[in-house]
Protein backbone atom coordinates (compact mmCIF):
# COMPACT_ATOMS: atom_id res chain seq x y z
CA UNK A 1 0.00 0.00 0.00
CA UNK A 2 2.83 2.37 0.86
CA UNK A 3 4.45 1.72 -2.51
CA UNK A 4 1.21 2.46 -4.33
CA UNK A 5 0.82 5.77 -2.57
CA UNK A 6 4.42 6.75 -3.14
CA UNK A 7 4.14 6.10 -6.85
CA UNK A 8 0.93 8.08 -6.96
CA UNK A 9 2.55 11.07 -5.26
CA UNK A 10 5.74 10.81 -7.28
CA UNK A 11 3.61 10.87 -10.42
CA UNK A 12 1.91 14.00 -9.21
CA UNK A 13 5.14 15.88 -8.70
CA UNK A 14 6.41 15.29 -12.24
CA UNK A 15 4.20 18.19 -13.26
CA UNK A 16 5.56 20.49 -10.57
CA UNK A 17 6.42 23.15 -13.13
CA UNK A 18 3.01 23.20 -14.80
CA UNK A 19 0.41 25.84 -13.95
CA UNK A 20 -1.96 24.93 -11.18
CA UNK A 21 -5.54 25.09 -12.41
CA UNK A 22 -7.79 27.53 -10.60
CA UNK A 23 -10.41 24.86 -10.05
CA UNK A 24 -7.96 22.54 -8.38
CA UNK A 25 -6.60 25.15 -6.01
CA UNK A 26 -10.07 26.41 -5.14
CA UNK A 27 -11.13 22.88 -4.32
CA UNK A 28 -8.13 22.54 -2.06
CA UNK A 29 -8.85 25.82 -0.37
CA UNK A 30 -12.43 24.83 0.30
CA UNK A 31 -11.11 21.88 2.25
CA UNK A 32 -13.07 19.30 0.28
CA UNK A 33 -10.04 17.60 -1.18
CA UNK A 34 -6.52 16.88 -0.20
CA UNK A 35 -7.21 16.27 3.46
CA UNK A 36 -7.08 12.51 3.16
CA UNK A 37 -3.99 12.44 1.01
CA UNK A 38 -1.98 13.15 4.10
CA UNK A 39 -3.98 11.54 6.83
CA UNK A 40 -4.37 8.00 5.52
CA UNK A 41 -2.85 5.50 3.17
CA UNK A 42 -6.05 3.60 2.48
CA UNK A 43 -8.06 3.91 -0.72
CA UNK A 44 -10.79 6.49 -0.57
CA UNK A 45 -13.41 8.25 -2.63
CA UNK A 46 -12.00 11.77 -2.55
CA UNK A 47 -10.08 12.95 -5.59
CA UNK A 48 -7.27 15.00 -4.03
CA UNK A 49 -6.54 18.31 -5.73
CA UNK A 50 -3.45 18.64 -7.87
CA UNK A 51 -1.70 21.14 -5.62
CA UNK A 52 -2.48 19.10 -2.50
CA UNK A 53 -0.72 16.11 -4.02
CA UNK A 54 2.27 18.13 -5.05
CA UNK A 55 2.66 19.67 -1.62
CA UNK A 56 2.47 16.27 0.06
CA UNK A 57 5.02 14.88 -2.42
CA UNK A 58 7.30 17.82 -1.74
CA UNK A 59 7.10 17.21 2.00
CA UNK A 60 8.10 13.56 1.48
CA UNK A 61 11.06 14.68 -0.59
CA UNK A 62 12.21 17.30 1.91
CA UNK A 63 11.92 14.87 4.81
CA UNK A 64 13.80 12.15 2.89
CA UNK A 65 16.60 14.57 2.06
CA UNK A 66 16.81 15.69 5.67
CA UNK A 67 15.94 19.30 4.80
CA UNK A 68 13.01 19.49 7.20
CA UNK A 69 12.03 17.63 10.33
CA UNK A 70 8.48 16.33 10.29
CA UNK A 71 7.83 16.82 13.98
CA UNK A 72 9.08 20.41 13.76
CA UNK A 73 6.55 21.02 11.00
CA UNK A 74 3.83 19.46 13.17
CA UNK A 75 4.79 21.79 16.02
CA UNK A 76 4.65 24.85 13.74
CA UNK A 77 1.20 23.94 12.49
CA UNK A 78 -0.02 23.28 16.03
CA UNK A 79 1.34 26.65 17.17
CA UNK A 80 -0.59 28.63 14.58
CA UNK A 81 -3.73 26.48 14.70
CA UNK A 82 -4.06 26.38 18.47
CA UNK A 83 -1.73 28.71 20.36
CA UNK A 84 -1.42 32.01 18.50
CA UNK A 85 -4.51 33.95 17.46
CA UNK A 86 -6.62 37.07 17.97
CA UNK A 87 -7.19 36.29 21.66
CA UNK A 88 -3.61 37.47 22.18
CA UNK A 89 -4.39 40.84 20.63
CA UNK A 90 -7.63 41.04 22.61
CA UNK A 91 -5.64 40.73 25.84
CA UNK A 92 -3.37 43.56 24.74
CA UNK A 93 -6.36 45.78 23.95
CA UNK A 94 -8.15 44.97 27.21
CA UNK A 95 -4.99 45.74 29.21
CA UNK A 96 -4.68 49.10 27.42
CA UNK A 97 -8.32 49.94 28.21
CA UNK A 98 -7.83 49.04 31.82
CA UNK A 99 -4.41 50.51 32.52
CA UNK A 100 -3.53 54.02 31.33
CA UNK A 101 0.19 53.67 31.80
CA UNK A 102 0.17 50.39 29.84
CA UNK A 103 -1.72 52.14 27.06
CA UNK A 104 0.92 54.88 26.94
CA UNK A 105 3.68 52.27 26.71
CA UNK A 106 1.74 50.41 24.02
CA UNK A 107 1.35 53.51 21.87
CA UNK A 108 4.95 54.67 22.32
CA UNK A 109 6.80 51.34 22.29
CA UNK A 110 4.49 48.58 21.16
CA UNK A 111 7.19 45.87 20.96
CA UNK A 112 8.00 46.12 24.65
CA UNK A 113 4.42 46.56 25.80
CA UNK A 114 3.20 43.55 23.81
CA UNK A 115 6.14 41.48 25.04
CA UNK A 116 5.05 42.28 28.63
CA UNK A 117 2.08 39.98 27.96
CA UNK A 118 4.34 37.34 26.45
CA UNK A 119 3.72 37.94 22.74
CA UNK A 120 6.52 38.53 20.25
CA UNK A 121 8.29 37.12 17.25
CA UNK A 122 7.62 35.95 13.74
CA UNK A 123 5.82 38.59 11.66
CA UNK A 124 5.48 40.87 14.66
CA UNK A 125 9.13 41.70 15.32
CA UNK A 126 8.42 45.43 14.91
CA UNK A 127 4.98 46.53 16.06
CA UNK A 128 3.12 49.82 15.97
CA UNK A 129 -0.28 50.27 17.64
CA UNK A 130 -2.63 52.93 16.25
CA UNK A 131 -5.52 54.25 18.32
CA UNK A 132 -9.11 54.82 17.23
CA UNK A 133 -10.82 57.88 18.69
CA UNK A 134 -14.24 59.46 18.13
CA UNK A 135 -12.70 61.42 15.24
CA UNK A 136 -10.16 58.91 13.86
CA UNK A 137 -10.59 55.45 12.36
CA UNK A 138 -7.59 53.27 11.49
CA UNK A 139 -7.59 50.38 9.02
CA UNK A 140 -4.66 48.08 8.17
CA UNK A 141 -3.84 46.51 4.80
CA UNK A 142 -0.90 45.10 2.85
CA UNK A 143 -1.32 46.03 -0.81
CA UNK A 144 1.91 44.27 -1.92
CA UNK A 145 1.48 40.89 -0.23
CA UNK A 146 -0.33 39.98 2.99
CA UNK A 147 1.68 41.31 5.95
CA UNK A 148 -0.23 40.87 9.20
CA UNK A 149 0.77 40.92 12.90
CA UNK A 150 0.94 37.18 13.62
CA UNK A 151 1.91 37.23 17.33
CA UNK A 152 -1.22 39.19 18.27
CA UNK A 153 -3.72 38.15 15.58
CA UNK A 154 -2.49 34.78 14.28
CA UNK A 155 -2.49 34.06 10.55
CA UNK A 156 -4.61 36.34 8.35
CA UNK A 157 -8.04 35.33 7.03
CA UNK A 158 -8.45 34.72 3.29
CA UNK A 159 -10.24 38.04 2.70
CA UNK A 160 -7.27 39.99 4.09
CA UNK A 161 -4.99 38.29 1.53
CA UNK A 162 -7.49 38.65 -1.32
CA UNK A 163 -7.18 41.00 -4.33
CA UNK A 164 -10.42 42.89 -3.48
CA UNK A 165 -9.21 43.90 -0.01
CA UNK A 166 -5.64 44.61 -1.10
CA UNK A 167 -6.64 46.68 -4.13
CA UNK A 168 -9.50 48.69 -2.69
CA UNK A 169 -8.60 49.55 0.89
CA UNK A 170 -6.13 52.29 -0.05
CA UNK A 171 -8.32 53.93 -2.72
CA UNK A 172 -11.77 53.37 -1.20
CA UNK A 173 -11.46 52.58 2.51
CA UNK A 174 -14.98 53.81 3.27
CA UNK A 175 -16.43 51.55 0.58
CA UNK A 176 -14.58 48.55 2.00
CA UNK A 177 -15.74 49.45 5.51
CA UNK A 178 -19.37 49.64 4.31
CA UNK A 179 -19.06 46.05 3.07
CA UNK A 180 -18.08 45.10 6.62
CA UNK A 181 -21.13 47.00 7.90
CA UNK A 182 -19.26 50.07 9.12
CA UNK A 183 -20.68 53.39 7.91
CA UNK A 184 -18.36 56.19 8.94
CA UNK A 185 -19.64 59.75 9.33
CA UNK A 186 -17.86 62.24 7.07
CA UNK A 187 -16.26 64.01 10.05
CA UNK A 188 -14.34 60.87 11.03
CA UNK A 189 -10.84 60.85 9.54
CA UNK A 190 -9.76 57.55 8.01
CA UNK A 191 -6.11 56.51 8.32
CA UNK A 192 -5.11 53.59 6.13
CA UNK A 193 -1.89 51.81 7.11
CA UNK A 194 -0.29 50.02 4.16
CA UNK A 195 2.22 47.52 5.61
CA UNK A 196 4.99 48.11 3.06
CA UNK A 197 7.90 47.27 5.38
CA UNK A 198 8.45 44.93 8.36
CA UNK A 199 6.42 47.13 10.69
CA UNK A 200 3.19 45.39 11.68
CA UNK A 201 0.11 47.33 12.77
CA UNK A 202 -2.54 46.65 15.38
CA UNK A 203 -5.58 48.89 15.79
CA UNK A 204 -6.53 49.82 19.36
CA UNK A 205 -10.33 50.09 19.16
CA UNK A 206 -12.33 52.43 21.40
CA UNK A 207 -13.54 50.96 24.65
CA UNK A 208 -17.29 50.32 24.44
CA UNK A 209 -19.53 52.44 26.69
CA UNK A 210 -20.91 51.09 29.98
CA UNK A 211 -18.02 48.71 30.59
CA UNK A 212 -16.50 50.39 33.66
CA UNK A 213 -17.55 47.43 35.82
CA UNK A 214 -15.85 44.80 33.68
CA UNK A 215 -12.48 43.30 34.54
CA UNK A 216 -9.70 42.74 32.02
CA UNK A 217 -10.71 39.17 31.17
CA UNK A 218 -14.29 40.26 30.56
CA UNK A 219 -13.16 43.21 28.48
CA UNK A 220 -10.96 40.95 26.32
CA UNK A 221 -14.02 38.90 25.40
CA UNK A 222 -15.55 41.97 23.73
CA UNK A 223 -12.58 42.54 21.40
CA UNK A 224 -12.79 41.09 17.90
CA UNK A 225 -10.12 40.37 15.32
CA UNK A 226 -11.89 42.59 12.80
CA UNK A 227 -11.78 45.55 15.19
CA UNK A 228 -8.01 45.08 15.62
CA UNK A 229 -7.55 45.10 11.81
CA UNK A 230 -9.87 48.09 11.54
CA UNK A 231 -12.69 46.59 9.47
CA UNK A 232 -15.00 46.83 12.50
CA UNK A 233 -15.34 49.90 14.72
CA UNK A 234 -17.93 49.91 17.51
CA UNK A 235 -17.59 46.97 19.87
CA UNK A 236 -20.52 45.68 21.94
CA UNK A 237 -20.76 46.50 25.65
CA UNK A 238 -21.77 42.93 26.50
CA UNK A 239 -20.45 39.70 25.10
CA UNK A 240 -22.79 38.21 22.52
CA UNK A 241 -24.44 41.54 21.70
CA UNK A 242 -24.01 43.14 18.35
CA UNK A 243 -22.69 46.66 18.61
Amino acid sequence: METTRRDFLAGAITVAGAPIAAGASKAGEAGQNGEHAHAHDHDHQDVPSDVALRVMALESLLVEKGLVDKSALDALVDTYEHKIGPRNGARVVARAWNDTSYKQRLLSNADHAIAELGYSGMQGEHMVVVENTPSVHNIVVCTLCSCYPWPVLGLPPVWYKSPPYRSRTVIDPRGVLREFGVVLPEHVEVRVWDSTAEIRYLVLPERPPDTAHLNEQELALLVTRDAMVGVARDLPSRQGDRA
Binding site: G34, H38, A52, L58, V68, L73, L76, V77, Y80, G154
Partner: peptide, 18 residues
Protein backbone atom coordinates in the same frame (compact mmCIF):
# COMPACT_ATOMS: atom_id res chain seq x y z
CA UNK B 1 -10.48 27.93 9.97
CA UNK B 2 -6.77 28.82 10.20
CA UNK B 3 -6.07 26.43 7.32
CA UNK B 4 -8.67 25.18 4.84
CA UNK B 5 -6.87 21.93 4.03
CA UNK B 6 -4.01 19.95 5.48
CA UNK B 7 -1.73 20.70 2.52
CA UNK B 8 -1.97 24.42 3.28
CA UNK B 9 -0.72 23.85 6.81
CA UNK B 10 2.09 21.54 5.65
CA UNK B 11 3.22 24.08 3.07
CA UNK B 12 3.10 26.88 5.63
CA UNK B 13 5.33 24.87 7.97
CA UNK B 14 7.68 23.59 5.25
CA UNK B 15 8.46 27.13 4.12
CA UNK B 16 9.61 27.98 7.67
CA UNK B 17 11.45 24.70 8.12
CA UNK B 18 13.33 25.05 4.83
Amino acid sequence: PVFHAIWESRLFAMRRGA
